[in-house]
């Protein structure tokens, strides 16, 4: 996951797991990274097939990535499973001096499209856990009738992001 710091990462960041505690349940996320290059765009449906949540990440220092994030969201709303939880994350919040995408713009876009929205920073780990927690809260609970402290709910999410989004930052992918 792009917005998870290195010290949280196993050997590969393409496939990750993240566990958050929600009330008395632990929710285990599996994060499947997709290749962001344009030439591999057409393959993305194979990754988000069956996913219960998607995090679309853009870079707040680039208007272009925000535009492409919107395209991804449109595609997800059209093609992914109807009850998929979509979250929009404005990454590199620590670089607010170079900000090109206003918080309010993204916030209102998210509200219009019923998305979760947060500005995050992989560098400072700001909001990283929070966004997962927010997703966990929003996931349909029907699939775990026997919820108890020991029961793990497994969720699979997919992470979509523009390939040129976060490479300059030292600590995030």
């Amino acid at each position: 996951m792009k917005i998870v710091c290195y010290f949280l990462l196993p050997s590969s960041a393409a496939f990750l797991t993240q566990t958050v505690c929600l009330d008395d349940t632990t929710v285990k996320f599996e994060i499947w990274d997709t290749a962001g290059q344009e030439r591999y765009h057409s393959l993305a449906p194979m990754y988000y097939r069956g996913a219960q949540a998607a995090i679309v990440v853009y870079d707040i220092t680039s208007q272009d990535t925000f535009g492409r994030a919107k395209n991804w969201i449109k595609e997800l709303q059209r093609q992914a499973s109807p009850n998929i939880v979509i979250a929009l994350a404005g990454n590199k919040a620590d670089l607010s001096s170079k900000r090109m995408v206003e918080y309010e713009d993204a916030q209102s876009y998210a509200e219009d499209n019923a998305l979760l929205f947060m500005e995050t920073s992989a560098k400072t780990a700001m909001n990283v856990n929070d966004i997962f927690l927010a997703i966990a809260k929003k996931l349909p609970k029907s699939d775990n009738p026997a919820t108890g402290p020991a029961v793990n709910r497994q969720q699979r999410g997919v992470d979509l992001r523009e390939s040129n989004e976060s490479h300059s930052s030292g600590c995030c992918k």
Partner: peptide, 22 residues
């Protein structure tokens, strides 16, 4: 393949799908 990418990018860092799929 993860090992290949790790060896091919001396800068290091986590391997993302951008490197892996190609």
């Amino acid at each position: 393949i993860f090992e290949i990418i790790r060896l091919s990018t001396p800068a290091g860092g986590a391997v993302s799908a951008d490197d892996f799929l190609p």
